[in-house]
Design a binder for these strands. Structure first.
Lengths: 160, 160
DNA sequence: ACACCTTCTGTTATGAGATAACATAACTAG
DNA sequence: CTAGTTATGTTATCTCATAACAGAAGGTGT
């Protein structure tokens, strides 16, 4: 996580200005369509995730929450994250205890990440879980959610 | 995790008696073969994992460590777990913050779990990561480790 | 045997991550 | 407008994990 090399963070630059505004508006629309409420704290946490270029720890979000440097209380942020995950706007990366905004259109309830141990980037990709789901079915499991986290080195860090 | 239903815990019954002894001996042998040392605390933690029929939290292991009810100190157990994971004798299940003994012969450095949200069982299975590894390669990632956790309901809990 | 190095353990303390519980406020349907 | 539901604010606490350092145990060369 930046501990091993000095490559620039992240594949995703983090959204700013109008791109950020658009992403938030899109989230508003999706909430409106399903009668969910993108309230102020939820919107703020989503904004922080979208602005960032790397997975964010919950306490990073807590610290950055207030406009003038005041932190949030932990439950405020954890509740917002729970909401954002439920709606597919964000994902938790278990092996990092960190959160990223969903970068993939449409909510599949499935997440897969390529995590660079060098620069800390976490790239979401569209998973093909065919093989695993058939293994699960064979074992009699009814799978509701499935997550995959692959650790390694991104292209830039492999090269550098 | 037992919160939703009353099915018996676990697909794996937990080892006892000679089966447990054999498993520990096998671990000794594998350590000896690679000049690693299965020291007393490491062996004890492995024993606790093998005896259990469900994923064990670190602090469960800490509490159960001593023969006469004395707990271990946290670093004792965490160090042992680190060792056991490194040698492939145990796996951490990220989404549970819990640990299981490896149930699959040979250490692939890859773990995949079917986790029952109903009874708490966590069944390890042999993953086929072909699809994901090719997606990673296409993105330029050099993958070193890969973990997968599927949540759902086991056969018994689906039926009941 | 010995000195040396390395690895592992014991211990104290603290840092990081997450949630319980309860009171209050804001929406929303009738 | 009032009853029910959903969300927030706040305090406190709980769970999970590691830093740091001293000392013991094992291994190696002479």
């Amino acid at each position: 996580m930046g501990a091993e090399c000095h490559h620039p963070d992240g594949v995703h630059p983090g959204l700013k200005g109008s791109a950020l505004g658009h992403a938030l508006s899109a989230a508003e629309s999706r909430c409106a369509a399903t009668q969910e409420r993108l309230t102020a704290p939820r919107r703020r946490v989503l904004e922080l995730l979208l602005e960032s270029n790397a997975p964010q720890k919950a306490y990073d979000l807590i610290a950055a929450f207030g406009a003038h440097g005041e932190p949030a209380k932990p439950p405020t942020v954890y509740r917002a994250l729970e909401f954002l995950e439920r709606l597919g706007f964000a994902h938790r990366i278990e092996s990092l205890n960190a959160y990223v905004p969903c970068r993939i259109d449409g909510q599949s309830h499935r997440a897969a990440f390529l995590i660079c141990d060098c620069c800390g980037a976490a790239e979401e990709f569209e998973p093909d879980f065919t093989a695993q789901l058939s293994a699960a079915a064979k074992a009699g499991y009814q799978v509701s959610t499935i997550t995959l986290e692959a650790r390694g080195r991104c292209a830039a860090c492999s090269a550098g």
